[in-house]
Every structure is written in structure tokens, then in C-alpha cells.
Design a protein around this nucleic acid. Structure first.
Lengths: 331, 331
DNA sequence: TTGAAAGCGTTACCAA
DNA sequence: TTGGTAACGCTTTCAA
């Protein structure tokens, strides 16, 4: 049978409470006593039951990462960014990836939160803007950090980049390269960042006095397939764009693949721009131009805010990466 | 205050035990009683405490996914494959990503397992071959499924592909294309699959009567950077290879980037082959040839084995994808 | 600085 | 088909 705290207390000749003090690194334990207890714990191969600690102490030692079914790089960046800090804090990471289409109302996520009192939560779009979910978290007193919130930004701690500004910068860049007909692939409708990026695009056009041609704006869903579909539509126009700015790298890769099939040389005949959290630019050849959202850094910062209890709206810089042939990001 | 099972039992006018029966969908509850209890639960917004269930019931309703710090596509494939089944089983997924270099002995993972009695575990390389960890799991009676085990394959349920056969097929393909000098980038030393893939490469050479040139074999670490380093070495040889087979797609992408820098046309002047779990082939242009490890399907199958309690060694087919220009995998 | 005892919210066992 | 009551293994409160 697994050793429990009582076994340890007997082996060490102290009370249960004292063992508990050692487990939790509390003060008021004489070094000698502490040593004796630790010895006993090691000898018995004792590891405190998290379930019991959670029940008695009201802490779960778990934080939740709630995200939609995101792309590989986004998910990886999140987990990579959270991993270290969680380990350092002795906390487990519960990954809850939900189906965006199937859970518009966040009901699933609500249930998820109500079952285990998490010590904290990290939310990503689009659930990050779901009021009932935020209400529940507030009600339960669970600290949480939102990544890329779209609404009520000052409601909680959050980490984001300036999506609108970044999209504006990218569009300006394309305009500076001489493009006047710039296609745009909008992101998933349920994500606030999609609108923010679209707004940046529109703003840059306005600023440059380029009239908006609605034929150049296609709806996408952040994935490779919808990028391809959008590219088919855009490149099939009587007067196709000379540049296409996709709201995510996955979609940009889709655009690239269509261009390739159509024997369109990139970037000579068609500039393709992506926007994302990925390292795709380093993998794709010839390269896309990418507006880089530092998702891993955002996750790291989110963990920092969560564990320090700081309620603050952090805005991290994004980064415009010209095509990798001129600005490689090797390593 | 959060409603507990006692509140529900009082509201419904039944005993605690009956509420428990309803929660756990046990038999021997009259439909009318069940309905009354469910009503009370809904009215009180009751959700059973997972901590209490875990403590009393000896089940944690959590399974662990233990992996090293894997690449984005690998991690994504794993989680995507496990997600649905976990949700269906009402079980949470705890992601434990550990540092391979820092945890050679699996001590960290051992602690991880001993703290919470998981209902099950999914292990991936290289910890999948760590005997102490497997022993601990056996001792605790925790069901587990190993993905791509390297040793003691019949020790537990597992899912794998035939790595050696796949690498052999890939090498044969390169030989069939007329290559005689085929570089090989070995995977990370701590992973058994690295040796398996190397064995397949060596076997195909032997079979074709091509003498092994050790200068053509470079050590890599599964990542982009080591792929670049290996390519620098191989392409810097007095007599460089005409094809390079990297044991992972990330490394293959690194090789590709070096080829690009050196103005080597791919695949006309240099064939590049990858081996992985990724969809890189669909993203990279010009394409690599890839031996595809269906990691998501492996994860799905692993979940199936885990939850059904089937102890079986499943071998899934891999797939040779010729360069994407001729065999696109769009969508 | 240490200890005794009362929870925490379930499930499991045994009766009824 | 239902209900008591003892675990489960820890934290917390209050004394000492």
C-alpha cells in the first residue's frame, strides 16, 4: 500500500501536522525535526496525495489552459511558454481543447471550470471573450489571464499584441512595395483578432488612398484549406491581386500552394503575407512575409501574471519578418 | 457557497448515497427518483467536486500525456488524437512535457506519477522505454499505452509504426531514383526510433550493395538547427551526397534551408527526404519527400486501447509521400 | 515549535 | 431500490 502522511508521522515520531508543515514548507519546524521527517518520507517513498490536498486545502494544484482546436504552432507555443513556470510552481497543466463550432456558448468550458476548482486559468480566443465563462471565473474567485482578448480588455489580466497595428504595418509594407491590389483573407469569424487584423488592413488602404475592392476580401477560417479556397477565388478574378495578405500563416501557406499549382512565381509575380504565431517563415521556401505574433512569449508572460497575481494588460511587440531569404531566422 | 452533495440530497429528499448513484449513473435508481435528483442538481447548480471523488473513489478522472518537449506537429497530433476520446470518457488530459536532457533518469516523471493516481497514461519516446517509470506504473496498477516503444514491446499495450521498414522503404526509393551517395541524418540519441530508422537506411544500402560511407552519416537531434548543421557537414564534403535522408521533417527542413543558401536546386540537384509526424510536406515548397508517421491516428488508437483496456501491440502503416508537387495533400 | 481533532465532499460497504 | 456510516489523506483551527 502507498504510504500516507500518518505512516510518515509514525516513522518520524512526530505528529501528522508536523509532516504537513514539512510538505508545505511552512515555518516553525525545527531543522532537526524537518530533517527527520524528510528522511522518513524518503524511506517510505511517500508522495502526498494531490486529491487529498485538493479536498482539504481547497487548492487543486492545477491550472487550466483553455483553447480551441488551434494550429500546431499556436498550441506548441502556448504549452512551451507555460511549462517551465508551472513546473516551478508545482502546478499541473490541464489542457482543455474544445471544438469552436460545437461550443459557441462555452457551455462545455463552463462545466469544465465548475467541476474542479482550478488554481488558475489561461484563456485564448475565442473563449477569452465569452462573458459567462469570465463571470463564472470571477464568481469562483479563480485567477485567470486572457491571451488576445477582444472585448472588455481591462476586465482582467491579459497579454496581447496590437493586432490592428500589426496588420496595418504589414499592409503598409505591401503598399510600399508598390502593390495596389492587395487581397485579404479574413480569419475565423468567432475570433476578435480577425476583425482587428481586418481593421488594420482597411486602415492602411484608406491611409494610402486605395479604394476598397470587396472582391479582394475573402472569408477564411484560419486553416490551410480555407487559405487555398480564398486563393482560388482571388487568383481567379478577372483582375487578380498582386499581393495576398492572409490573417494566419496556415492560410498563407494555402495561398502559396495554390500559387504554386498555378505556376505563379512567388514573390516575383505575387507577394504573399502571413500573420501568425508560427515559425512557418523559416520552413517555407520561397518564404512568405510574416507578421510574427510571439505566442510563446505571450504564454510565458501570462504565466508570470497568473502566478504573481498581477492584474495588468500587457501588450507585447509583434515583428515583421521580411521573406526568410533575406532575413533568415535559423535556429 | 458551492452546493455539495448533501445540499442536493436534502433538496431532492433522498439520501446522499442516492445522489451519488445518480452522479455515477449507477443502476438501482428509480427513474422518478433520478429525475428528482437531477432537477435538484440543476436547480442548485451542483457539480461534483473532482477532488472529493478522486479521494474517496480512488479515481482521478485524469489521464497523463507524458512527452518530451516535442515539435509542434507531434504535440498537436497527440493532443488532437486524444482530445475527443477523453472528452467522451469524461476524463481530463494532463500534459506533462519534460526536458529530455534534464531528466535522463525519468525522476521528474516518476514524481509526477506518484503524486496523483492517474486513471491512465500515454507515454511517448524516449520515456516510453524508461524501465523505472514503467515499473512504477505497473506497481500502481495504472493502465498505460506506449507510443513507439523501443524495447520490451510486448510489455504493455502500444502503438507504433514499423520505423525500420519505413526507413528502408524510403532509402530504397532514393536508390531507385538513381542515388548512390545518400546522406543520412540520425535522430536524437535518446530515442529508440532513431536507431530503428538508421537500421532501415543501412539495411537498404546493404541490400543494394552500396558500401557504407560513414562520412555520409551525421548525428542530429530532431530539430531544425541540427538538420542545418548536418547539411553543412554533408554538403561540405569533397564528394557530397546527391540525396539526404533526415530522420525527421524538422531536420529535413533544416537541410533544405542550407541547400537553398548554397543555391542548390531541390530536387534536381539534391533530393531531400524527411521522416515525420508533420504535415511539413504540404507546407514546404519545393517539397520534401516524406515518410509520414500518422501520429494523430496513433494517439487515437492509443486512447482506444487505454479506455478499452485492450493490451495489444498495434502497428499502424506509414506512408511514403512523394514530393508534394506531384502528390499534394491539400486540406 | 508542536499536537489533537474537526472537517473537506465524495464513494464504498453493508444493511434494510 | 434505498439509506447509514465509515473511510479516503490531507489541511486547518485551536490549544498547548
Amino acid at each position: 500500500m502507498r504510504a500516507n502522511i500518518k505512516d510518515v508521522s509514525q516513522a518520524a515520531g512526530v505528529s501528522i501536522k508536523t509532516v504537513s508543515r514539512v510538505i508545505n514548507n511552512e515555518r516553525y519546524v525545527r531543522p532537526a525535526t524537518r530533517a527527520r521527517v524528510e528522511e522518513a518520507m524518503a524511506a517510505l517513498g511517500f508522495h502526498p496525495s494531490q486529491a487529498a490536498r485538493a479536498l482539504a486545502g481547497g487548492r487543486s494544484f492545477q491550472i487550466a489552459l483553455v483553447c480551441s482546436n488551434p494550429g500546431p504552432y499556436y498550441l506548441h507555443g502556448l504549452i512551451a511558454g507555460l511549462r517551465g513556470r508551472c513546473a516551478a510552481e508545482g502546478v499541473r497543466l490541464i489542457v482543455h481543447a474544445y471544438e469552436v463550432e460545437a461550443d459557441e456558448l462555452g457551455a462545455d468550458v463552463l462545466t469544465f471550470f465548475r467541476q474542479m476548482g482550478f488554481d488558475g486559468a489561461i484563456l485564448t480566443p475565442p473563449i477569452v471573450d465569452n462573458a459567462p465563462v469570465l463571470d463564472e471565473l470571477d464568481r469562483a474567485g479563480t485567477p485567470y489571464v486572457r491571451i488576445s482578448p477582444g472585448v472588455q480588455r481591462d476586465r482582467s489580466a491579459s497579454v496581447a499584441i496590437d493586432n490592428e497595428g500589426a496588420a496595418r504595418a504589414m499592409t503598409r509594407r505591401l503598399i510600399a512595395l508598390g502593390h495596389r491590389r492587395i487581397g485579404f483573407v479574413v480569419g475565423h469569424r468567432s475570433y476578435a483578432v480577425s476583425n482587428q487584423r481586418l481593421a488594420g488592413y482597411l486602415d492602411a488602404l484608406r491611409e494610402a488612398g486605395i479604394p476598397l475592392d470587396l472582391n479582394l476580401v475573402e472569408q477564411g477560417w484560419f486553416d490551410f484549406g480555407s487559405g487555398r479556397a480564398a486563393a482560388e477565388a482571388l487568383l481567379g478574378l478577372p483582375e487578380p491581386p498582386t499581393a495576398i495578405f492572409a490573417s494566419s500563416d496556415d492560410m498563407a501557406a494555402g495561398v502559396l500552394s495554390v500559387a504554386h499549382q498555378r505556376r505563379i512565381r512567388v514573390p516575383e509575380q505575387l507577394s504573399i503575407a502571413g500573420f501568425d504565431d508560427t515559425d512557418l517563415a523559416k520552413l517555407v521556401w520561397p518564404p512568405l512575409t510574416t507578421m510574427r505574433q510571439p505566442i510563446r512569449a505571450m504564454a510565458e508572460r501570462a504565466a508570470e501574471l497568473l502566478f504573481s497575481g498581477t492584474v495588468e494588460q500587457v501588450v507585447l511587440p509583434s515583428e515583421l519578418i521580411e521573406r526568410a531569404s533575406t532575413a533568415p531566422r535559423w535556429g
